[in-house]
Design a protein around this nucleic acid. Structure first.
Length: 273
DNA sequence: TAACACCTGTAA
DNA sequence: TTACAGGTGTTA
């Protein structure tokens, strides 16, 4: 579910609510999600530690502790972190529960595809997907020149390149389609048929759709919830994703749906070439 | 590069 | 009953 804007929306709230809180206990409803170590090892590692902040790289979250280890989290399709003050009611699909000195931090995940790792607080984590991440899509290292170089260095179609987290970190299926629409590029266009000028337009479109998503608190189609359990609003602003069969907001042509690299892909056949 | 795997839920 | 879903890692 969550792409960069959704993960960042969660991060900002969790950072604000849990920094400085002490972990008094951990309840593990689903040990399968802990990708290294047993539930008992996790309890021993986190109990008594104080949360010192929550940061993000691409779609990964890091929960920092005042000790030698940090918690690395990937929400995959339906994961989310929710902070509740006080005791609060149990929520559906809660898989991990951190008892804090004030309130609770809940990991909720319908499809249970999410991943949690205990990693060293500094240095490489040994988690391949994390250690090989490309520049963050809203960071200073992701530039138009860098994107152009990557397009030149790869073969194949442009949309799968945008979804490759080793190329650029944070873009997922919704924002890839939305950025390609803004840049007037067909998702099936070959990387080697994109000019320097068009690459610059694509770079700007990527940053724009991600920042718009962030401003609107993320996109809630089905499952996404922000750190306080509410819904994002960016679904109101989508141009192509989920709009197949309806008129393009710009030209009126019917938005198409195809499969590309195994992912549902939406585009305007008139605006995008 | 494609299919499949990991899961659960929902809509066609 | 089948297909599909904001992701990604492995396998053919």
């Amino acid at each position: 579910m969550p792409e960069l804007p959704e993960v960042e929306t969660i991060r900002a709230y969790i950072d604000r609510k849990t920094t400085g809180r002490r972990i008094d206990g951990l309840y593990v409803y689903m040990p399968r999600l802990l990708k290294n170590g047993t539930a008992d090892e996790w309890k021993a590692a986190v109990t008594g530690r104080t949360i010192t902040g929550c940061t993000r790289r691409g779609k990964y979250l890091l929960l920092h502790l005042d000790g030698p280890q940090a918690l690395l989290i990937h929400l995959r399709m339906t994961g989310s972190l929710v902070y509740t003050g006080g005791k609060g009611e149990d929520i559906r699909y809660q898989r991990l529960l951190f008892f804090l000195d004030e309130g609770r931090l809940i990991y909720r995940d319908i499809r249970t595809l999410g991943c949690w790792w205990l990693v060293p607080a500094a240095g490489p984590t040994g988690i391949t997907g994390y250690d090989t991440l490309g520049p963050d899509a809203i960071g200073n290292d992701f530039t138009a020149a860098y994107l152009y170089d990557q397009l030149k260095a790869h073969h194949g179609k442009v949309k799968p390149l945008l979804l490759d987290q080793t190329v650029v970190a944070g873009i997922g299926n919704i924002y890839a389609d939305e950025a390609l629409f803004l840049a007037h590029i067909r998702p099936s266009r070959c990387c080697d048929r994109i000019s320097k000028k068009t690459a610059a337009a694509l770079h700007d479109a990527i940053v724009q759709v991600l920042q718009q998503g962030l401003i609107h608190g993320g996109t809630t189609i089905r499952n996404f919830m922000t750190g306080d359990g509410s819904e994002g609003q960016n679904q109101e602003y989508l141009n192509v994703y989920g709009r197949e069969g309806t008129p393009c907001r710009v030209c009126g042509a019917t938005i198409k749906y195809v499969k590309l690299g195994g992912r549902g892909t939406h585009y305007c056949p008139h605006c995008q070439h």
